[in-house]
Write a protein that binds this DNA or RNA. Structure first.
Lengths: 233, 233
DNA sequence: TCAATACTGCCATTTTCTGACAGTATTATC
DNA sequence: GATAATACTGTCAGAAAATGGCAGTATTGA
């Protein structure tokens, strides 16, 4: 057995005990000498595992969860981040705090080059409604956002009017009554929201838009804030 | 540099390239020989990393995310699972699928002893409402559920009537208009739902209830289903 | 006091990792 | 079709890391 493997193993074993367990026993189960076990424990502790050793008693692992290395696809990572954002917004206080912690831990280990792109993931979270229309497939849209591609859409408004726009998509909001695409509209030279259910057809153009999605997002956010304040005063 | 460290490093470097990069260049950046680099690449591939090597061109990493080992507290793990459950229920189809994948990957690596407990986490997901009252602290409740402890609550119904119950809590639903505690009520000998906002005071008793929370959950779920079917017919 | 246990330092031995080299295979380019 | 660039494999000796054994200290509970 590999040393790395053995370390993971040791954590699993430790967790399976509810009462303290002696180093000797652990060493035996791992098939290594007691000396090596001490070294392994030290390594895990250095890695952040909360293992407590009490003299004359044994080792006990604080109830923490250890996630071994995992690979995720881009979409899976999006789901992960989105889910955490949701939990941090809608959980009760400690859960929300925990979700934020998780988000931080994950973002921390993501390479800098991707951290920026996370805003692009900018799948925003809003309170979803009673009925979820999970059948939509927004992956085309998400990809377009990730690549900062312009898109052509045919949109049917709630009044039933159809219209056609070329827009720069930069975020999707997950809201009560479905999902909302937020984009800069080339035709109207303004930010616009489109309910995704109203998007009848969508074509990704082979043309990138120029201010980055992050900048668009920031500007749009600032605008929203201003509107909000004006409404209040 | 440690071998393990170097492997993580290699992944980071690989991801930072958008175009193929030669093994020689990678070896140079890592400060190892080309032979070792080939070995490292092979190791990563064996670990599931989607690295593609094309002869005469170089290596390119498929856009996947690698999460190094991480430690989470119990609450953080709950938030993680809850968030994923939410995403898998309310995302559009591919996102939902991705979230389910994430959930599976995480549950897979959790030790068996905990997998059972996951139902206890059984924080259920329902569509939250427009206003989120994140100020509540349900951790006491979550702990009581985890430990299968009976609790005494004083509850104020929507009509304003106060009442006192001894109940066996087994799950919390995260719903539109707040959170709902689902429990078996000792007084009424029946399952009951309590809006968490209505719970005026809560006392965890030093007494465990006997059918496991999993069983209670299952029975309650079956009842719900039956009710649902009866309403339809 | 005694037994159980955690924990450290040292060193020889074992195992693994690494680099060097030689060689094959594939692909793009001139 | 030759050439260059590159991936990839096998082998082996030397370097580095991991391991086990032992001796010893410290702490805790019985």
């Amino acid at each position: 057995m590999n040393r790395t493997e053995r370390l993971l193993n040791l954590l699993q074993i430790l967790r399976s005990y509810r009462y303290p367990v002696s180093g000797e026993r652990l060493a035996e189960r791992l098939g290594v000498s007691i000396r090596t076990l001490y070294r392994d424990i030290a390594t895990l502790q250095a890695m952040g595992a909360e293992i407590e050793g009490e003299v004359g008693v044994g080792y006990i692992l604080k109830p923490t969860f250890f996630l071994p290395p995992l690979m995720f696809t881009q979409t899976e990572m999006q789901a992960l981040l989105l889910g955490m954002r949701w939990a941090s917004q809608f959980g009760d206080a400690p859960l929300s705090k925990a979700a934020t912690e998780v988000l931080n831990k994950i973002v921390d280990v993501l390479p800098a080059s991707i951290k920026n792109a996370i805003n692009a993931f900018a799948l925003r979270v809003g309170p979803p409604g009673p009925e979820s229309l999970a059948k939509e497939d927004l992956s085309v849209l998400r990809d377009a956002i990730a690549d900062q591609k312009k898109i052509d859409i045919v949109y049917k408004s709630e009044e039933g009017k159809e219209s056609r726009w070329t827009v720069w998509p930069f975020t999707i909001g997950y809201f009560t009554d479905g999902r909302i695409l937020v984009a800069w509209c080339e035709n109207q030279k303004d930010y616009r929201h489109f309910k995704t259910q109203g998007i009848i057809s969508l074509k990704v153009l082979d043309e990138c838009y120029s201010p980055s999605k992050d900048n668009l997002f920031r500007e749009w956010q600032a605008l929203q804030l201003r509107k909000h304040l004006m409404k209040r005063s």
